[in-house]
Each structure stands twice: as C-alpha cells, then as structure tokens.
Design a protein around this nucleic acid. Structure first.
Lengths: 137, 137
DNA sequence: TGCACGATCTCCAGTAGCTGGAGATACGGA
DNA sequence: TCCGTATCTCCAGCTACTGGAGATCGTGCA
C-alpha cells in the first residue's frame, strides 16, 4: 500500500490536491491505516493518473466526474465520452484562436514603441486608445 | 457625469467589476452624488477603457497597476511598459503552444474511437493509459 | 408633494482548482 | 524510547470576478 506521499511522487499530483480530489468525490474515500492515514492501492493510483491526464488536457472536474462514471460502465455506449472529448477540443480551439488574436495585437504593440519616454510609448498609447487596434477583441 | 450604470454600458464592464476595480485600486475612489452614488467623468471612463483593453489582452491586475503608474509619469523611460508587453507576449505564446499540443492530443483521442461501447472507447482508454499518448504533456 | 419603480449602495459569500499554514498526531529507524 | 519526518484536519487565501440580500437613492408621473 502506498502512503499519500508515495502516491504523490508516483503520479506527480501534489498531496493537498489528492485530498482535494477525494473531497470533490473524484477519488473514493481512501482506506486508512490504524492511525488514520490514507493508504492507496493500484486501482487508486490508476484512477489518479486518469484524473491527472484529463486535467492536463484541460478537462474540468465535472467532465472528469462524468468520464469516471462512464469508465465504470463498460457496456454503456461511448457517445458521451466522445462528446466530452469533442467539446473539449472545441473549447481548446476557441482558446487558441482568441490567444492568437491577442498575440498579433501584442506583437504589434510591443514592436511599435518608437519613443523612449512613456509619453510617446506605443504600449501605453495603444492601451489607452482602442482605435489603434487592428481587428476586434 | 455618468452613473455607474452608464459607465458600465459605455465600456462593457459590468457594474460589480467596476466596483471591484475601485476596491483593488485600479480606479480612484469615485466622486459621489449627494445620496452617495458614484459619479464618473471623462477621465474615469478613459481609464476604465484602458483597464478593459489591458484585461482583454490578458494582463493581470498587478501588471495593469504598473502600467497606470507609468502612464501618469509621461517623462519616465518606457522600458518597463515595453517589458510588461513583451512578458505578456511570451506568456501568451507559451499558452498557445501548450494548447496546441493539447489540441493534437484531443484530435487523436477524439477521432480514434473505434468501438461503440465504453469498454472499447479510445477516449477512455487514452485517458487511463498515458502510454497511448504521443509526445509529452 | 407623494408614490412607484428601477438603479445603486454596502456587505458578504461563492465560483474553479487548487495551495499553504497551524497545531496535533502517526510512523519508522536507531 | 526518542527523534525527525509524514500525515492528519481545519481553515484561509489565491485570481478576477459574480451574484444575492436588504436598504437607500433618483426620477418621472399624477
């Protein structure tokens, strides 16, 4: 059996985060030692890896909760899991698009500074005057 | 003079958010009517637009605070403003890169689902088994 | 002048997803 | 048995808001 510290080192998930996942119901309440310390087996380690992987992909706690329910019902159709992945993909793509437009704007702002005093600084002027922007954001 | 509602409509910043900015010191404490309601002039409107623009670009409250200090000292050198913009650009690019790697992973996961039951679902399997991933994340 | 109704006030709590500290207890090797 | 590290629970705080409760203000209309 692993202690919470062992589990943390093996999965790369911090100890308070593990307890937080338990509290949020992503992990079942852990078995305890005689002295009330959490002990984990292989199943729990796998589930935590699953959670970490999903979090790394940007899924919310709620989405992960759904996936966990699904994964414990192997005979269910997997449409819902596909839908969650597809929605996350859409969301990631939306974020990328938004960030790319910010990137263009920042490049323009950051490379246009002509003066060397704040009063001529393009960064400051561009922020103060939205008219200087290209495109919408 | 504008009421807080007028200011909100003209800048697109919600009323509680305006009060929050005041509380955080990005906006000076507003003038008040006889009945203690906030009243705003042109200067405050411009400053709020500046803040909104910077927030839309993803700058933190702290970064904006620095920029506001700078913009009220027109004779200072603008290196610091340039630095803030450049740092934000780096951070945005980092986020884009990370999201793009997530995107690739999600595309792979979401398009590979062969079966129609959860037990064969690639989405679930990929999350459970990091070995199925390409690249690092 | 009185009233009705929407706008605004302050204060507080909640959101997501952790993160860290305080003070008490458990574990494991010498 | 002792010591040092790990873990326990509880609670508060982080960012950047957002929303509700209950009270007060402002304004148009009769």
């Amino acid at each position: 059996m692993l202690t919470i510290g062992d589990l943390s080192r093996r999965t790369g998930v911090k100890i308070p985060t593990i307890r937080y996942y338990e509290q949020r119901g992503l992990l079942a309440p852990a078995e305890r030692s005689d002295g009330n310390q959490r002990r984990y087996g292989k199943r729990e380690r796998e589930r935590l890896s699953f959670i970490k992987h999903a979090r790394d992909l940007g899924l919310t706690i709620e989405a992960i909760r759904e996936l966990i329910v699904l994964s414990s019902h192997p005979e269910w159709p997997c449409e819902q899991a596909d839908r969650i992945a597809a929605e996350q993909l859409l969301s990631v793509r939306g974020k990328i698009a938004k960030l790319q437009s910010l990137e263009r704007e920042l490049v323009r702002i950051a490379t246009h500074c002509g003066g060397d005093q704040v009063k001529d600084c393009y960064v400051i002027r561009a922020l103060a005057d939205h008219e200087l922007c290209e495109g919408e954001h």
